[in-house]
Nucleic acid binder design. Structure first.
Length: 260
DNA sequence: GCGACAG
DNA sequence: ATCTTGTCGC
């Protein structure tokens, strides 16, 4: 197992060299006034990706890519694919299971020059809120490289990582996060920065919808800042899980049920 | 040594 | 991730 982890870590480090953790895109969030009429690009198409697995066939799964209209949150594109996944799940290396299907679905959309190709993707898993994988050429590793980072680099698209559970890393534990959330002295507008023992801000915990005490964990995937990521996630939450991910989740499960 | 460990 | 019914509440 340790030999496997070493190989996966090395592959992760290679991709990590391309990671960008700041805003790097040519559109805006389309606040109100200066929208489309002013000529600037506005964020319109947000993609969501998820995989569901079969109960009796653990190696067969369904990957689903959806695209939603940022403003209406309507699903404007959907594509699912049944695949065989033999790569085992190893904590810290989730992306290696998801990457093949993800790339296949995205490439299909790209090749067909679809009009609603996503400007940004939301991934169910973490971004830089992820365990260290070792030093990178003597450089200090400032953050991890979760599946949202991994898929973002592969697609060369901005990505946001959204976890439903906390992956304990850099001293961040459920009890620690609970303390931070309860100590709402930081009456931040709904989210708490997650600062690890290293002093780095790895993500944010936020109560995304009214009826959920359980937070979601947002972190930078690729080519977006944490501030932008949080803002975008907030705007796409009708329920606890942001719509792009929720829709991909629901539809991948449905598709798998119908076709297996 | 033991437990923890995204989906 | 997946195994799973009802149930309490807005």
């Amino acid at each position: 197992m340790t030999i496997i982890r070493n190989g996966l870590s090395k592959a992760q480090d290679t991709l990590k060299r391309k990671l960008i953790t700041e805003d790097d895109y040519n559109w805006k969030l389309g606040e109100s006034e200066e929208d489309e009429s002013s000529g600037v690009q506005v964020l319109k198409y947000i993609g969501g990706f998820d995989i569901s697995f079969s109960k009796h066939h653990p190696s067969s799964a369904c990957g689903t890519l959806v695209v939603l209209d940022f403003k209406t949150l309507n699903v404007v594109y959907e594509d699912s694919s049944i695949v065989t996944i033999d790569v085992p799940y190893v904590p810290g290396f989730l992306a290696f299971r998801e990457a093949p299907v993800f790339v296949q679905l995205l490439k299909k959309m790209q090749d067909s020059s679809h009009s609603c190709y996503p400007q940004l993707l939301m991934i169910d898993g973490n971004g830089i809120l992820h365990p260290r994988v070792g030093d990178l050429m003597l450089l200090v590793v400032k953050n991890g490289f979760g599946s949202a980072c991994h898929l973002g680099v592969l697609a060369d698209l901005p990505t946001i990582g959204v976890g439903k559970n906390l992956h304990h890393v850099d001293g961040l534990t459920n009890s620690r996060v609970r303390e931070l959330l309860e100590a709402e002295d930081n009456f931040n507008v709904g989210f708490i920065p997650l600062v690890g023992d290293s002093g780095n801000t790895l993500g944010a915990a936020l109560h995304s919808s009214k009826g959920s005490f359980k937070p979601i964990f947002v972190s930078v995937g690729h080519r977006v800042s944490l501030a932008s990521a949080v803002e975008i996630v907030k705007r796409t939450c009708k329920y606890r899980v942001p719509e792009p991910i929720r829709q991909a989740d629901i539809r991948s499960r449905d598709y798998l049920r119908k076709h297996h």
